[in-house]
C-alpha cells in the first residue's frame, strides 16, 4: 500500500497531505481525468517542499510495569486485622494484584467475600506457579471477581514445597475442583478440602507434571505397565 501511495503523493502532494487512504484513492480517481493541468500547477510548486504529510509528534510508548499503589479502593476497605497480611498491592495495566502472606490468606478471602462493599463472590480461577530454586517454591494465584464493583483482582501467595495451604473451598464451592487440579499437577496439599484427589491424571499416577523438575515427556512407566498392554508395533 505504501509503495503505491508514494508516486501518487509526489504528483498531488498538497491535496493528499493529511487525507486518509480512502480519500486519497478517490482523489486519485477524480484527478486522474484532469491530470495534465494539475501536474503542471502543483507538481512544480509543492514536490520539492513537501513530499510527505506533516510528521506527527512522536509519543514514547510507556512500557507497562508493575507499580506499587497505596490507594487501591478495594484494599482500603478491608478489615484492619486482615490488612496486616497484605504484603503489597500492585497495579499493572489497570489490573490489581495483591501479594499476601500465607498465614492471613484464609481470613483475607473470607473478608473479601463477606465485606458488603466488596462482595467478591466469584472465584474465577486458581492456579499455581513453580519457581524452582526459590525457598518458597510455589506461587498460588487466585482471580476474584465482584459483580457489585465489576472488578477482577488477583491475589498471590507464596508457599514452600511441603507446606500445607488452607483451602478456600468452604468460601467458594468452585475451589473444590480448582484445588484438586492444583494438587494433581503441582502436589500442593490443601487443608480442609472435602475430597483432595487427582482430577485430570489417573488416580494412581506418580509425580506432579507441572513442576519444573518434571520432564515434559516423562510417563509413569509403572502405571503404563500395570494398566495398558503395549503391543509391539510393526516397523
Amino acid at each position: 500500500m505504501s509503495d503505491e501511495e508514494k508516486p501518487k503523493r509526489d504528483s498531488e502532494a498538497q491535496k493528499t497531505a493529511g487525507k486518509t487512504d480512502l480519500k486519497e484513492e478517490s482523489a486519485v480517481a477524480e484527478e486522474g481525468a484532469e491530470k495534465p493541468p494539475v501536474k503542471a500547477e502543483e507538481g512544480t510548486e509543492k514536490s520539492p517542499v513537501k513530499d510527505k504529510p506533516a510528521p506527527k509528534p512522536k509519543v514514547k510508548k510507556k512500557i507497562p510495569s508493575y507499580e506499587d499503589v497505596d490507594d487501591d479502593p478495594v484494599f482500603q476497605k478491608l478489615n484492619e486485622k486482615v490488612a496486616v497480611s497484605v504484603l503489597s498491592v500492585q497495579n499493572f495495566l489497570d489490573q490489581s494484584i495483591c501479594t499476601v502472606s500465607l498465614d492471613g490468606l484464609y481470613e483475607l478471602m473470607v473478608d473479601l467475600r463477606d465485606n458488603a462493599d466488596l462482595d467478591f463472590n466469584y472465584l474465577v480461577d486458581m492456579t499455581a506457579l513453580d519457581y524452582l530454586g526459590d525457598e518458597q517454591r510455589f506461587c498460588l494465584v487466585y482471580q476474584l471477581y465482584s459483580y457489585k464493583l465489576g472488578r477482577l483482582i488477583r491475589i498471590k501467595t507464596r508457599a514452600a514445597e511441603d507446606e500445607v495451604v488452607p483451602s478456600v473451598s468452604s468460601i467458594w464451592k468452585t475451589a473444590d475442583w480448582l484445588e484438586r487440579e492444583v494438587y494433581d499437577l503441582f502436589g500442593i496439599e490443601f487443608s480442609g478440602h472435602p475430597d483432595l484427589r487427582r482430577i485430570l491424571l489417573p488416580d494412581d499416577w506418580h509425580g506432579y507434571p507441572l513442576r519444573k523438575d518434571y520432564d515434559i515427556k516423562l510417563q509413569d512407566q509403572a502405571w503404563i505397565s500395570s494398566h495398558l498392554k503395549i503391543r509391539k508395533t510393526p516397523v
Binding site: L200, P209, Y214, Q219, L228, I230, R231, T233
Partner: peptide, 15 residues
C-alpha cells in the same frame, strides 16, 4: 503432543 499424558500412536494398544 509428545507429552506425559498422550499415547504416541493408538497402534501401541490396538492393531
Amino acid at each position: 503432543f509428545d507429552t506425559y499424558a498422550t499415547l504416541q500412536g493408538v497402534d501401541k494398544v490396538i492393531p
